[in-house]
Every structure is written in C-alpha cells, then in structure tokens.
Design a protein around this nucleic acid. Structure first.
Lengths: 227, 227
DNA sequence: TATTTTTGTAATAAAACTGTAACAGTTTTG
DNA sequence: CAAAACTGTTACAGTTTTATTACAAAAATA
C-alpha cells in the first residue's frame, strides 16, 4: 500500500515504532511531535490518513480533529485517534468530534495496520487500490509495474513514486514544494529544481510518440497529471 | 486559499508572525501599524477580511470597527478583533460594536487560521471556494484551469491572478492602484499603466468573438469584471 | 568489490512572461 | 472645435521560469 500518513504524537518511542513499521509496509510517513506543527503539516501535505494522539503538548488532538473536520477541504482525511485511556465514553467522544476510528495504547501493530487499511479502503479507494488507472496509464502496486497503452514501462524508484502520487489526485496542480514533501518526504534536503529533472524523466518514460504530454506544466504553480 | 487580508496591529512581532504564516497559506497580506493608516488602507484596498488590534496608537480598533460597520460599503468586510484582555465582557463589547469574531492574545496560529477560514466561508464563499463561476466564465483553483463557455482558456500567471481577484468581487470597480496592491502585492514597483496591458491580455484571452467584453473600463476609475 | 543503476546538481538552452514606452484612438473639458 | 486627459494597442527588450543535458556522487546489485 502506498499512502501518505501523518502521525501527530509526542511520545517519540511510538512515533519511531509506528513510522518504522508503516514504512516497511510501503507507506510514506511524516510526523509531528506537537499539535501546532501537526496541524500545519497536515494542511500542508494533505496526507491520506492521520494518526493522532488524544493528548498533545499544546493544541490537543481533539482540537485538531475538530478543526479539520470543520473544514470542507480537510474533512475527508480519515483520522485515527490514539489514546492511553480505554474508556468507552472516550470512544464515543472521539467519534463525536469526527474521528473515524479510535485505538487505545498500547496497541499491536497488526491491529493498527488493519484499521488503517480498512479506513483507506473506505475513504480513498485510489490510495488503497492495488491497480489504478488514469486514461491508458496503469499502475500496479503489487507488482510495481507501470503500463502505458498496455505496454510495460520502466520507471526508476523516484519516477514511480512521483507517478503514484500524481495518479492519486489527477489533474490537481502541485507545487514543487508539495511534491518534495509528498514524494521525497519531510525534512529532506533537495533543491526544488530537482523536481524538474524527475518530471522530465517521468515524461520521457510515460509519454508516447505523437500523443499529448500527460504531465502539464503550470507556470508559476507546478505540475499536474493531466490529459 | 486566496484572500486578501489586512492587519492593523502596532506590535511588529505579531504582524511579522501572522503575515508570514498567512502568506504561506496562500493569503495576500497587507498591514498597517496604526489606526489612521489602517482605516485608510482598508477603504483603499477593500480586503476580504480584517484583523485588528483592539488598542491602537491613534484611532483605536474599536473606533475603526464602528466606522466601518456604519458604512454600507465596508460593513460586509469581516473583522476579527485581537486583544490582550480575555474578559468575557470585552467579547460581548466586541461583538456589539460589530466585530465578527474576537480572539485573545496570545493566540495560536491554527486557532486564528480556523477562525479566519470560518469567517471567510460564511461571508465570502467566493474567496474560499475551489471553483468559482461568473456567468459562463469558470475558474478552478485546484487544477488552475479557466473556462469560458465550457472551453478551456490559457492564461499566464498574472492574468490568472488578475481574474481570480476580479471574480471574487464581480462588478466592483478597482483602480489600477488597487489592482496592483491586490494582485501584484504590496511594495512592488510597477507602473500603473502596466495594468492596462494585462487587462488587455486578459480580455484577449477570455472574451469571445461577438460577445460583450467581460471587462468594463470605468474612465478615471479603473476596471471591473462585468457583463 | 566491481558493476550497474539511480540521484541530485549545475550549467546552458529554450520558452514563456513581464513591464515599458511610444503612439493611436477616444472621451471629456474649456 | 481644440486641447487635455485618459485608455487601447503594439512591439520589444529584459527578466523569469522551465527544459534539457551532462556528470559526479551515492546507492543498489551482482
């Protein structure tokens, strides 16, 4: 599975553990250790799912959840609340404020994974699907193969990730910065111009002689997968 | 989000902080550090929302708020009052004098942002919407595409921004100076006649053969998106 | 470890966009 | 009606942004 997950959690041990395991499953994981940054990062990177601690240093997970669910633009991002308490009433409260699921610490990783997958399948089929298409472009996440007009195409790792990201939100324009955080990951130090080069490599790979460029350049804004 | 926000606040640190964060969110921000200039600037630039300090060197925020709310032309601009005091009675007072919301310092940026967005959604849907139409003209901020009569149109960055600005307040006339500060940004050094040229480019792009010009020239005043 | 693949950057080329000035045309004013 | 004020249009040089290429370093693979 190839989804962007954001974790907002102040206990470093949990972050490390979950981050490690989710990465191994193929997820792209970013994290924040307090509410303020978490909220900002979620809006910036538009993750496919959020794991959030109930209690947080400054802005609580409950607050962030409420804020996100109030906003049309973000309310569809599924949120799983993590909490130390196992009270039934908290669960009710969590669901009331709009959280999509609720899991008590300590939890087993397989349990967490199952819930994540269930939510993603429900809320963002394109993220959970094994095979996604856009026009005559097809990407198979199980075999990690990409096809254009039924012909297989070879892509390097970065180009593959780039395409996988684009295809989840076709036609939407992403800035170089957004692409860097979503495809390369957080706190990585790469020139934004580097995106251009990978865009070129991706174009070279997926475009067919004589057909329209599948990647649209939007001057002063970024790129989008389009046709 | 693409809205023009004006801040009237004498504490430079707050201005800097808020300005920086709002810019990153995509807002276009201008600011004044005293009441006199603030009042003038608000009338001049017609922002989509105003953040105003309760106490100000000369003309107090309370006064400005009252003045604006008394004037039909400006009373619909949402105003958020910033104050150091957290008294409940002040909140009542703020709302009484016409402020639309009230936030006490120190405040967290996410909280401010949430309130700003909530207000904008309520008062100026066209600022918060992803897709806006004016007649058979449509602008999609996600894909950054513009359509006239369902046919896609190519616009350069400046023309796109210009149209995006016009469409938020259709029919309203903007002077060249207003357009410069709102579309180009503050403290930029561009001849006001340059606006003419971009207006021409925009016209050329969006107008259809045989139909009325969508941009109206108002002699000695400026331009408006009209029909 | 040697070989191959992938990656990021910098340099350069190409393309798109911008602002200005000049002049033409139009409307208003005296 | 002539002068003045304002707007429309055009061309173009300069600037900014994007495309392309080559290459060295890093990473993966054999």
């Amino acid at each position: 599975m190839n989804a962007n997950i954001h974790i907002v959690e102040d206990e470093q041990s949990i972050v490390t553990l979950v981050e490690y395991n989710l990465s191994k499953e193929g997820f792209k994981v970013n994290s924040s250790t307090n509410g303020e940054n978490g909220f900002k990062a979620i809006k910036d990177t538009n993750p496919d799912l959020v794991l959030m601690d109930w209690m947080l240093p400054d802005l609580s997970g409950v607050e962030i959840c409420k804020l996100l669910k109030k906003n049309d633009k973000y309310k569809n991002i599924p949120i799983i609340m993590l909490t130390a308490k196992g009270e039934e009433e908290d669960k009710v409260k969590a669901l009331n404020i709009g959280a999509d699921d609720y899991i008590t610490k300590p939890f087993s990783f397989p349990e967490l994974l199952a819930r994540i997958k269930a939510l993603l399948r429900r809320s963002k089929p394109s993220v959970a699907e094994d095979i996604i298409s856009f026009g005559d472009l097809k990407i198979d996440r199980i075999t990690r193969k990409v096809y254009r007009a039924n012909k297989q195409i070879d892509l390097g790792p970065t180009e593959y990730n780039l395409l996988d990201f684009f295809i989840k939100n076709p036609k939407r324009v992403y800035s170089r910065e957004q692409l860097l955080t979503n495809v390369w990951g957080d706190n990585i130090n790469v020139e934004s111009r580097t995106v251009d080069v990978h865009i070129r490599r991706l174009r070279q790979a997926i475009n067919l002689e004589g057909t329209k460029d599948l990647i649209r350049t939007v001057r002063a804004a970024g790129y989008s997968l389009d046709n």
